[in-house]
Simulated assay, not measured.
Amino acid sequence: MSACWMFVILMGCRLGPSHSTQTPSTCACHDHLETICASPGDTVTVPCPKLDANHVIFKLLQDEEMIYNQSYVREKKALSHKPTHNGVGVELRENKDNSSVSFRLTGVNNSSHGIYRCEGTVIYPPPLKTVSSNWRVLVLLEGHQCCRNAKSPGPNCGFHWIWILILVSIYSIIATIIAVVIWVKLRRTDSQSDYMNTKPKAPRERRKKRGVQNPIPRHF
């Protein structure tokens, strides 16, 4: 019985509903995930790794798919104009205070939902190497995937929680039914095994008849 419950618990941990901020990606255990609940038209910053190199190509990835790349030369410090991706402006900017570089998304819209990360490839000096930032930014759209203000939620803010509760309840009922069925089958198997291993006793009438058929001779 304990083995069956362990199996059910392990299946629950593996198949249970995941956190709402998780999306398919190859996140490492040491990465930091920052969740941003953005309104349409907001600006989102995606930090890039700090690289001590003169020439670096920075790439912006959305759900592990590259959507933009920018060449950065430290001596020239020339950054290109704003391109657009699905109507969202993308710009590579440098923070002069700490010499950090980051991508800036301006005017986010419904297509901006996903996990963003920055990746840098060192061109000079050699050797050629690629470094990914430890910071990942999960962009959620207010009213669709998140609620920025709990007092005045968006049109679909509470709707997702209702579905999550319904799915959790259904999963718990199914897991309980499976556990009960397995437990009943094990009880039946144990009962049959005990019955087969038990040696039946001889009938009392048969033993009495044997005593009559083979009397013990008496000597006077």
Rank of each mutant, 00 (worst) to 15 (best):
E205R: 05
I216V: 08
K76R: 04
M1E: 14
H144P: 00
C29T: 11
S102L: 02
S132Y: 15
E75L: 12
T23Q: 11
S112G: 01
E65R: 12
A175W: 08
L141R: 01
K96A: 15
L140W: 02
T21Y: 15
H19S: 05
S25K: 11
Y72D: 06
L61H: 00
R188Q: 00
R207H: 01
K82F: 12
A202E: 01
D63V: 14
S71L: 04
I174W: 08
V44I: 07
V73S: 02
V184K: 05
R93K: 00
K76F: 05
I67Q: 03
Y124H: 10
D63G: 12
G114D: 14
E64T: 07
K201E: 15
H219N: 10
M196P: 03
R188S: 02
R93M: 00
A179K: 11
P215I: 14
P200H: 06
V131D: 07
F159K: 03
T130P: 07
E91C: 00
A38N: 13
C146Q: 11
Q62N: 06
S133T: 03
Q70H: 13
L92F: 04
H219I: 09
V44W: 02
G107C: 04
M11Y: 06
A175G: 12
Y124N: 07
Y68P: 07
L61E: 03
E119S: 06
S152Q: 08
K208Y: 03
V168F: 09
L105C: 11
G107M: 00
A202R: 09
L79S: 02
P155Q: 14
L10A: 06
R204A: 11
V108T: 00
S111G: 02
L15G: 12
D190A: 04
S71I: 10
K201Y: 15
A3H: 02
Y171R: 14
I166M: 10
W163A: 10
I182R: 14
E64H: 01
P125Q: 07
T45M: 12
I9A: 05
L167P: 00
I115W: 01
R117A: 04
H55I: 07
D63K: 04
K185C: 03
R207W: 03
L165N: 13
M6D: 01
V8W: 08
K151M: 12
F103T: 08
E64W: 04
S39Y: 14
G120D: 03
T84N: 01
R187I: 10
F7M: 06
L140Q: 11
P125W: 10
D42N: 13
V8K: 15
E64R: 05
T43C: 09
G12N: 15
V73D: 02
W183D: 13
T43D: 05
T23P: 05
T35M: 02
A202L: 06
S99W: 09
E91G: 02
Q213P: 07
N109Y: 09
R14Q: 08
I162Q: 06
S2T: 03
P200Q: 10
S133A: 14
R188L: 00
C13N: 00
G12R: 04
G41A: 05
L167I: 15
Y116N: 03
I57G: 14
F7G: 12
D42L: 12
I178T: 11
R136V: 09
P125L: 05
K185M: 06
K201S: 08
K209V: 10
P155E: 13
I115T: 04
R148G: 06
R136N: 01
V90M: 14
Y195G: 08
L141G: 04
V56N: 07
V131C: 11
